[in-house]
Amino acid sequence: MARAHTPARKAAISAVAWTVALLIFFPILWTVLTSFKTEGQAVSTPPVFVFFDWTWENYATVQERSNYARHAMNSVVISVGSTLLALLIAVPAAWSMAFSPTKHTKNILMWMLSTKMMPAVGVLVPIYLLFRDWGLLDTLGGLVAVMALINLPIVVWMLYTYFKEIPGEILEAARMDGAGLSAEIIHVLAPMAVPGIASTMLLNVILAWNEAFWTLNLTAAKAAPLTAFIASYSSPEGLFWAKLSAASTMAILPILVLGWFSQKQLVRGLTFGAVK
């Protein structure tokens, strides 16, 4: 807007925006603060905000008692593994749809999108039974496969929209310049595709990390990722808020940082390229 903004107006807007932003962020901040309190301080009334005896004890306890590291590792394996698997399947598909589209390309894309619309509960029963019969319940392999499949449409779509932005003329220029197929891929396509693939990866890791329907229903103790592990705090004994906070902080911080880096891609990925 061409209007001149007075400093007073800017200050007022800043004040309102910061207040609202801190209110929205508060539950996360509160969780992080509580994770450094003793259990007594965690439930005290009136609550203590900053002036308490900071302690790392909860983090140690969470690890000791419930093997946090193992569940964190499960989360990493499931989110990264499913992402890599989905990329492996999706990259060639997105590639050929973007660079040599046929008259079916659009229909295939739309159909892939439609599979994402299917509610998980619609197939919970057969998937659960198949997993039980095939011995896949509570295994990392089973979850990696499921996560890769449920996110495959988003991965194909995101890659497709990124690949689509690589101008065809550049590939033609490379061919005129004497690049063979392998040189074309190594020197031209790959460097141009890497940012798109990396963004897709990032978003997919975030989505898989936070997925809490299949992970809750298909895992028990062994393969449970952090989503399921945290859920086990819903029926605890005794004082547990500080420990819950410590476990929660560890579960959300890494992904929060990743998420902050992927704001733009997030919009594009989750809207299937409809909003950029």
């Binding site: 003329e169 550049i170 061919r175 005129m176 690049a179 063979g180």
Partner: peptide, 20 residues
């Protein structure tokens, strides 16, 4: 013949420079 072996060079409308 494939484009590379025709010994021709082309300047494209979008210039088609390699951005990286």
């Amino acid at each position: 013949l494939p484009p590379a072996r025709r010994g021709l060079a082309m300047v494209f409308q979008s210039y088609a420079l390699y951005p990286h």
